[in-house]
């Protein structure tokens, strides 16, 4: 869709099979969302999702299972990548899946990038539905949304330590006997 270049903080635009991905600067994400809603007609935010790209494309990381020893569980099979994936600008991506319901319903993905500890502006004032979505992202991925009215853990207990969807969060698991790690 044309008009993306006028989004505040516009960085890049990539067409995908199902919707275009528009990357914007992290500092300007709220302005970009307001622009998308008011000027481009994206009146519904369907989903907010964050992804942790820690170790993305690294050796032996694909299929990495965070056992206590940190080894690749499938070793010595050929779990490595055949092609190294495209490197990402920062550790976390935050994607907003948008839908312009009143305007023939095109979809778009607004995306911004954040390093560890970097805050992202909350867009609850733009789409009220982002309240729980942002809380979920904060809870499971540990990204702090500035000026969110009620940024607390949503799915996990309040006293939970860590953010489980991060790639460096250990998932435990039992040691397997007679494997090569023994």
């Amino acid at each position: 869709m044309s008009g993306w270049a006028r989004v505040p903080g516009y960085v890049s635009h990539r067409d995908g099979p199902e919707m275009p991905t528009v990357t914007v600067e992290t500092e300007l994400i709220r302005e970009a969302c307001e622009h998308a809603r008011d000027q481009l007609g994206f009146d519904m935010c369907v989903d907010v999702v964050a992804t942790d790209y820690l170790g993305w494309g690294g050796e032996g990381v694909s299929g990495y299972i965070g056992t206590s020893t940190g080894r690749d569980l499938m070793h010595p099979m050929t779990q490595g990548l055949q092609v190294l994936p495209e490197l990402k600008p920062k550790r976390f991506s935050v994607s907003y899946h948008l839908l312009a319901l009143r305007q023939g319903a095109p979809r778009a993905r607004l995306q911004c990038w954040a390093d560890e500890g970097e805050h992202v502006a909350s867009v609850v004032s733009v789409w009220p539905t982002c309240d729980w979505h942002e809380r979920e992202v904060y809870d499971l991925m540990g990204i702090v949304f500035d000026s969110h009215p009620n940024l607390e853990r949503l799915l996990l207990p309040e006293d939970w330590e860590g953010h489980p969807l991060r790639k460096d969060y250990p998932i435990g698991g039992e040691p397997v006997r007679f494997s090569d790690a023994e």
């Binding site: 199902e18 369907v46 989903d47 993305w56 694909s62 990548l81 994607s95 969807l165």
Partner: peptide, 28 residues
């Protein structure tokens, strides 16, 4: 690649956002 697919489930839009790094397990 990354992809978002949505279907009309009995409760509304059920979507799946999937990121693959080219390996045999989903990245996200």
């Amino acid at each position: 690649g990354e992809i978002y697919v949505a279907v009309e489930s009995p409760r509304g839009e059920s979507g799946c956002y999937l990121v693959s790094d080219g390996g045999p397990k989903p990245w996200r």
